[in-house]
Design a protein around this nucleic acid. Sequence first.
DNA 1: TGTTGTGAAGCGGTTCACAGCA
DNA 2: TGCTGTGAACCGCTTCACAACA
Lengths: 256, 256
Amino acid sequence: MATGRNHRPATRSRGIPEATVARLPLYLRALTALSERSVPTVSSEELAAAAGVNSAKLRKDFSYLGSYGTRGVGYDVEYLVYQISRELGLTQDWPVAIVGIGNLGAALANYGGFASRGFRVAALIDADPAMAGTPVAGIPVQHADDLDRIISENGVSIGVITTPPGAAQQVCDRLVAAGVTSILNFAPTVLSVPDGVDVRKVDLSIELQILAFHEQRKAGEDTAADSAPDPAAPPVRATTTSRKGPDGDMPAVMPA
Amino acid sequence: MATGRNHRPATRSRGIPEATVARLPLYLRALTALSERSVPTVSSEELAAAAGVNSAKLRKDFSYLGSYGTRGVGYDVEYLVYQISRELGLTQDWPVAIVGIGNLGAALANYGGFASRGFRVAALIDADPAMAGTPVAGIPVQHADDLDRIISENGVSIGVITTPPGAAQQVCDRLVAAGVTSILNFAPTVLSVPDGVDVRKVDLSIELQILAFHEQRKAGEDTAADSAPDPAAPPVRATTTSRKGPDGDMPAVMPA
DNA sequence: TGTTGTGAAGCGGTTCACAGCA
DNA sequence: TGCTGTGAACCGCTTCACAACA
């Protein structure tokens, strides 16, 4: 999901569990940092600490890739960087198109970490004719009318959607029609796509709401064990029936 | 979350599974849309379709909150909007501070969906003195020196980190010291925090790498069953030992 | 009749604990 | 001796299938 996942069922891809795939980039980042410090080998314990996971999980993850460690010693950093990069498909270049060049789209276009590892911003696309030609992050914005051609000519297979929610599904459909088979969606919209197309979503609002849930619980622990009914007036249900809430419940008709 | 989660162990919070909590915002969004269209009731099937999940999962999720439906009829939209909002803690106001007002920080500050539901950008903080006072999205940027005071005065308990990776841990420490107990981290860094502090991370780079993994697999299916060794020269391992890769393996010493 | 609510089965992932090996 | 690799136990989530009931 970032985050939650609008994604294929969690079957294994060539024997590698989805959860493991999601952690490989984490390991890769930690290993890259070690590599830059010219550290030759690393133990599962050390690497796990750097990646923020526990060592048993890391070893299990690596075991799906093959036996790349040396017992009694650890893992060869450079070798592992290469193996994970290869497994993730980062030894090749991935041209990416960003559709919707508002604040967020522009921020992503300018994001440095983007290009650093296998990805390259090949095109910026927006529906506003006034933006056409204007360079953002050194890349000229092209008009959405040419979306199909732009995708084809650049061999784009990964699209990033940063449009307003109302436009997201339509943009998605056009991207898919043009040949895009992986989509990273920043719009707060549930996208429907044909089989064979992967969608991952990043949603700031959802992340905040999850944090708010836990935050509320923390606050509740300080006071009484059960939270008092909320002061805000709740809507009254259409039918007046007894309701069974776990706790902090309220009567069907709320007194003002 | 988005993606992968640097998070507390997946124990249940007041009986509500973490996976369910992560979906509640999705249901809430779909319900809000129905509410705006003045739809009075909705079945689990319909709502599930709108939220992009299956109906059995939705019913199970709702069962953790209580018995809020009516058999043979469905769920009262307004009532459910309120119950989920309350469960997520959105009936109260959450002041949020954004630290690091670069492209991304500014984009988030301008993001409309932010304020719409319970959250309010209470402060923008940056380490660059030149930015101090400059308004972004109508909110003046304040200097990081005053971070502690700003957090306290505004009662901020949720912090958003959009700094460069090198500054993220330090900013995190200062936020936590000032009383922040929930952090949304956009920096590609593993944050370490004391118990009781929640961290969620959003990482564009990780999401893209996961997509690339699957994209590579799709491409591989078209050609031969096993992927040919990558043309790029792999690093040679320090020790020359037989390696056991699942397939597409390469000899310890790669011929040019 | 139509839809919810939920035991129970199934499944994927995590953790444990130790055998295997440099 | 020390660290990896992994079977097995465990755990939480998903899915199934149907009883409960407005």
